[in-house]
Computed example of a mutant assay.
Amino acid sequence: MLQLYANIKNRRIELGMTQSDLANKLGYADKSMIAKIESGKVDLSQSKIVAFADALNIKPSDLMGWEDISNNNIEPIKLSSSITIPVYGRVPAGVPIEAIESIDEYIDVPAEYAKGGKRLFGLKVKGDSMYPKYLDGDIIVVREESDCESGQDCVVYVNGYDATLKKVIKKQTTIILQPLNPEYEPIMYEYNDENHPVTIAGVVVEIRRKV
């Protein structure tokens, strides 16, 4: 995929466009986003690759750097497929994801996130307990899981309340919900504590920030 980002930069320069020019054509409010994309710091979905190709007056296949296979047996590189998932403002405990009706918006994400047929959903971050990695208003893409590895950032239910985002640390007899903001204290729970049950709702696979 790094070739894609180099091709975007080369084509933009070839057309005599500035990064601001391209940002305006694509509707990016933050002009520095083009610099981040050209340096490979931001992954592009299939729909975004097509949008860049249109803005740069080039075929998506050429922008991707596909090989000419007319005289050889090289297989073309395929764009990753994407799927559309809902983004929620809150995920109430005890309600299956598919049954939640308060959808804020829909976003496209790479289909490979849903490995093993896992359900995906988006959730808007609220508060600053996970600052600076996560900011209030960020959208996290979550793969629904009932368990996680120690150290993963997860959406969890505690005591039956709405889902919250925390780093999950697993010890031999306890589970720790670790905020990233040092102003907040970690909270420790015993496994199988019926009075303070902790349930994993899903694992974060991507952060999206509107700029």
Rank of each mutant, 00 (worst) to 15 (best):
G40Q: 06
Q178W: 11
V203S: 01
K126R: 15
L4P: 00
I176M: 10
V156N: 00
D153I: 13
R143P: 01
G122K: 07
D193M: 09
V42L: 14
H196F: 12
D68S: 05
S80H: 15
D147K: 09
T18I: 08
P96L: 02
A23M: 08
I175H: 06
V156T: 10
K126Q: 15
K210Q: 11
E38P: 01
S45D: 12
E149M: 11
Y88H: 01
E190M: 09
L15I: 03
I107Q: 02
M17T: 02
S32H: 07
V141I: 14
I175E: 13
S102A: 13
L180I: 04
E144G: 04
K31Y: 10
R90F: 05
D108I: 05
S81C: 04
Y113E: 02
E183K: 14
R90A: 15
L4F: 01
Y157W: 06
G127A: 11
L165W: 10
R143M: 14
R119K: 11
S45V: 13
K36Y: 12
P179F: 07
R209S: 09
L15D: 08
D43P: 00
Y161F: 14
N10R: 12
D138H: 03
N57D: 09
S20E: 14
L2Y: 10
N181C: 04
V109L: 08
K210G: 05
D162M: 05
W66Y: 11
I103Y: 08
P132E: 14
V155I: 15
G122Q: 04
I13S: 05
I169T: 10
I83Y: 09
N159R: 09
D30E: 13
F52S: 00
M17G: 00
C148I: 13
S61I: 12
I85M: 04
Y88F: 13
R208V: 06
V155Y: 04
V158P: 01
V204I: 08
E38Q: 06
I34N: 02
I107Y: 00
G151Q: 02
N195Q: 14
S61C: 03
V205Y: 00
L2D: 13
D138A: 02
Y28F: 15
K166Q: 03
Y106G: 00
V158R: 02
N192W: 08
E190F: 07
P60G: 01
Y113L: 11
A111G: 06
D21C: 05
A99K: 15
S129E: 14
M17E: 08
S32W: 03
I139V: 15
L63P: 00
T164Y: 05
